[in-house]
Amino acid sequence: MHSPSTSRSGGPNELLVEIVETLEACGLEDDSYQLHEYVDPGALEQLIASADENITVQFTVEGIPLDVSPDGVDVIIEDESQSVGE
């Protein structure tokens, strides 16, 4: 299950701003991490912008799992009702 996302209009670096804003909304301060240590921001932006198909890239920053797609940035929320082995 994913949290609601915010759609992007596709401006330069808007994806990166949305990632930072999403992390801040989760309580992570922007000076507590370096995004480039978790993902190549330029490559991520190019990949999302040039994808012909629906693509999703998932990565975790300081324990916050993110799902990035052309539709926006979502925080991945584990479904606690499912347990291993079901």
Rank of each mutant, 00 (worst) to 15 (best):
V39A: 02
V84S: 10
G63P: 01
E14M: 05
D71Q: 15
G42A: 04
L47E: 11
V57N: 06
E18F: 00
S32N: 11
S9N: 13
E37L: 08
F59K: 00
I64Q: 03
S69Q: 10
V20S: 11
P65G: 00
V17I: 12
T22V: 04
F59I: 03
F59S: 05
T56D: 07
H36I: 09
T6R: 15
G85N: 14
L15W: 01
P65S: 04
V39G: 01
L35N: 01
D31H: 11
S50N: 14
L15C: 04
D74F: 05
L66Q: 07
I64K: 06
D52Y: 10
S7L: 05
I48A: 09
E18Y: 02
V20A: 12
M1R: 11
D52I: 05
C26I: 02
L44P: 03
G63D: 07
G42L: 14
V73E: 01
Q58A: 10
E18C: 01
V75H: 14
F59R: 00
E62V: 08
G10E: 06
A49M: 09
V84N: 05
I48E: 02
Y38F: 15
V20Y: 05
L35I: 04
V57T: 12
Q82E: 10
V84E: 07
I76G: 00
E86A: 07
G72Y: 02
S50C: 10
T22Q: 03
P12E: 12
T22Y: 01
E21F: 06
D71A: 12
V17F: 07
D74T: 05
